[in-house]
Design a protein around this nucleic acid. Structure first.
Length: 760
DNA sequence: TACAGTCGGGG
DNA sequence: GTGTACGACTGTA
């Protein structure tokens, strides 16, 4: 084997050698390598306890090397005396550490619960899909490894990965699939599920013949792979899902957890060794980023590919922070130990603010420029050097100190994202590489967004609330500085929202007219800023509950290039039935042809005609059922519901049919006459005649009002589009009261709490 | 009127 | 394997 170059695909613990590695050589061979690998972790605490730990470790059977040394804990000044524990055989470490947790509750452990990829990446500079030079001895023993590229390269040499796609011919939650559709090496196969034995034999032959690097499945985690594995053991036909011979697959249980204010359901997982299983239906945020987004995330976070495909970007950024710490000799706490410092009421008042939000001037405006800070919060963290160890307790950042852990982690990511966006801006619209760069930029965006949230999360390993607050302070200051600059240059500020502002100035209609403003803002704040575009027209909407109150994030408009931007309206809400969302977009597309507000107004009759057609479609039952599906997330266990919300009703129906619906799962259903629903994932289809078309018409009319009323069309006029038929107008609520007058005035207020992911 | 339940974000 | 905000809105009692 000697020396060769190629890509590093996979790493995992190996009972015999310590570490198994898979390489894809330039000549196309897939090679299994092995080497020993020692891991180190640390303990700190009272001297007596450390001595006791020393004796305990000496007495137990797992070989270890012990030494006393000093290391840096990010949350404590100076160096911390620690006991270093080196475990020469990596697979021993988790078991050993497990036993220490109960035995030594008073000690603080560091670097104790890191996955093997992270340790390997810290030690060697490698990362998933890194280009490497491998030097091998007999039997695949890895003697030396040289990493040839970096995760920050914009154009990494693409690894010629082989993918086997597997998908049942229908959604197994609905019906029993009859065929397994497979695609590999440019060929498609259709394998019958019954009888099982030939299926297994054929599939096994496909895998052996093509030896894919990736098993890209639909429902592989939740249904297909468990089913195949079960069949394999029942029939006694070996199925080489793993590339690693003789090793079983790894399984993770399904779970629901709370994140970003809502429950998330994560399905069960089936993980492979030596090749990757990615279930595109169980991939989290990377879902629509496709495989490239997953690979990009794995490269920059040094998370295993199969994990990167399934975890949130939160664990990705956490992984990057840990890597920065390991490489810089900073201890990675096992559990974050530091509680928040006590704060006075005044501090709380000062701190507990999020992004700056203005009340927009409601109504229709022409020639409005939208100017946004680019990745505002991450830019502030890097620019102002905000990190747990550099932030003073007053919440003031310190730029006179060396760059902190968080800025060091973020800076390359931020630079790469900006470079990718630059590359995109220079690319032709039809460049075949465009989607690739988009997907990569997108993956980076999520990592950046999450990093800010993590600063404020009390259980994050490197979080600290004061740093979090220093960031939001910086954001508010920057936005105010931007507003002042705009006003000084004669712009009217129509709206401010956390990291963006909407501006108008008589005679200012060209992109270049904004250049002096952008330059001034960038100079004053030190943060990157860009013109998102100039709206031909944009409408900021009032509250539906109280017409006098503007709401900060409900608007729609059309840029000069004809593209439509919407926020908060029906078309963007995930619980809107597709029919309603599409109808609203249809109306907007018609209005978007208007070059200014007046021209758009002239297109209203055409929009009303389209609306009339849509209403008729609903009334005559011609809208396809799938377009009427409402999707809502189950927010809790079925038993915990106190009133039968539509999602709870759907869950009850599923349960009655023997299918358990977990919190965090999105359930789809149609509204039925009489107030009920019919869950979509039932074996029976709803009777189209039972569909509550009146309710859908009401939803449609509301969506139409949202986009038409700003043009001066009354709600009554929208509802009267059908000759001889006026749909009743639901009464507006709470119009009375002193609130309205107060709300009519424009005032600046701050969001309290999280606005983390609004910002980028 | 009060309360319970759901959504939001980007590209 | 990571986050339990908060305001807008809707439906129902």
């Amino acid at each position: 084997m000697a020396e060769f170059t190629g890509w590093l695909l996979d790493i995992y613990e190996d009972a015999a050698d310590g570490l198994a590695l898979w390489a894809l050589a330039d000549d196309g061979r897939r090679l299994r390598l092995r080497r020993t690998f020692a891991v180190r972790f640390y303990a700190a605490g009272p001297d007596g306890e450390l001595r006791r730990l020393w004796q305990y470790l000496r007495a137990q059977p797992i070989p270890v090397r012990l030494s006393r040394t000093e290391r840096q804990d990010l949350f404590h000044p100076g160096l911390l005396p620690v006991l270093a524990v080196e475990v020469p055989h990596a697979p021993d470490q988790p078991r050993l550490f497990q036993s220490l947790q109960d035995e030594f509750p008073r000690l603080n452990f560091y670097d104790a619960d890191l996955n093997i990829w992270l340790r390997f990446a810290a030690e060697t500079g490698a990362f998933p899909l890194a280009r490497c030079r491998f030097d091998c001895g007999a039997g695949g023993r890895l003697l030396a490894l040289e990493v040839l590229d970096s995760p920050w390269d914009l154009d990494p040499a693409p690894a010629p990965l082989r993918t086997l796609t597997l998908a049942p011919d229908c959604d197994p939650t609905h019906a029993e699939p009859r065929f397994l559709e497979a695609a590999v090496g440019g060929c498609r196969y259709r394998l019958a599920f019954e009888p099982l034995r030939p299926l297994l034999v054929n599939l096994s032959a496909l895998i052996q013949r093509h030896d894919p690097d990736i098993l890209l499945t639909s429902f592989g985690d939740t249904w297909l792979l468990p089913r195949l594995l079960e069949a394999s053991s029942a029939c006694g036909v070996a199925l080489p899902l793993n590339r690693e011979f003789g090793r079983g697959t790894a399984h993770r249980k399904a779970r629901s957890y709370f994140s970003y204010g809502q429950v998330v359901y994560r399905g069960p997982q089936v993980l492979l060794f030596g090749r990757w299983h990615i279930d595109r239906r169980n991939a989290m945020l990377w879902d629509d980023y496709d495989l490239e987004g997953v690979l990009e995330a794995a490269r920059v976070t040094a998370q295993p590919v199969q994990a990167a495909a399934r975890t949130s970007p939160g664990s990705g950024i956490s992984s990057m922070q840990m890597l920065t710490a390991l490489r810089g000799g900073v201890l990675v706490p096992w559990h974050k130990q530091e509680a928040e410092r006590p704060k006075s009421a005044l501090d709380l008042l000062r701190y507990d603010q999020g992004g700056l939000v203005y009340q927009p001037i409601t109504g229709l405006h022409s020639n409005v420029g939208e100017v946004d800070f680019i990745s505002m919060y991450p830019s502030i963290m890097v620019h102002a050097n905000i990190s747990p160890e550099t932030t003073r307790s007053e919440g003031e950042p310190s730029t006179d100190q060396p760059p902190g852990l968080i800025p060091r982690t973020l800076e390359p990511l931020l630079n790469k994202r900006i470079a990718l966006k630059q590359r995109l801006a220079e690319m032709a619209a039809d460049d075949p590489l465009r989607p690739l760069y988009q997907v990569r930029a997108s993956a980076h965006k999520w990592l950046l967004v999450t990093c800010f949230g993590y600063l404020g999360y009390k259980n994050a390993r490197f979080g600290r609330i004061e740093s979090h607050e220093a960031v939001t302070n910086g954001g508010r200051e920057a936005l105010l500085a931007a507003k002042e600059a705009a006003e000084r240059q004669g712009f009217e500020v129509l709206h401010l929202y956390v990291d963006g502002m909407w501006l108008k100035r008589e005679g200012t209609t060209r992109v270049s007219d904004y250049t002096p403003l952008l330059e001034e803002i960038s100079r004053r704040t030190g943060l990157p800023i860009a013109l998102d575009g100039i709206f031909r027209w944009v409408a900021f909407l009032p509250s539906r509950v109280n017409e006098a109150v503007p709401v900060p994030n409900r608007y729609f408009g059309v840029f000069q290039d004809g593209s439509i931007k919407t926020r908060g309206i029906e078309a963007r809400r995930r619980d809107s039935p597709p029919f309603i969302a599409e109808a609203q977009m249809e109306l907007l597309t018609i209005l978007a042809r208007g070059k200014d507000a007046a021209a758009a107004r002239a297109l209203i009759p055409e929009a009303l005609t389209a609306l009339r057609r849509r209403i008729r479609q609903l009334r005559e039952g011609r809208a396809p059922l799938e377009k009427l599906l409402v999707g809502q997330k189950l927010s809790r266990e079925l038993e915990k519901y106190r009133s039968p919300s539509p999602a709870a009703q759907a869950a009850a129906q599923l349960q009655a049919a023997g299918k358990r619906a977990e919190p965090g799962q999105r359930l789809y259903f149609v509204y039925l006459r009489g107030g009920g629903v019919h869950a979509w994932d039932l074996p029976t289809r709803p009777d189209p005649r039972g569909v509550d078309s009146a309710r859908y018409i009401e939803l449609l009319l509301r969506a139409a009002e949202t986009v038409l009323c700003p043009f001066g069309i009354s709600a009554e006029a929208v509802r009267g589009v059908e000759p001889g038929r006026l749909f009743p107008l639901p009464s507006r609520r709470g119009l009375s009261g002193g609130d309205a007058a107060a709300a009519g005035r424009r005032r600046i207020r701050a969001f309290s709490g999280e606005v983390s992911d609004v910002m980028m």
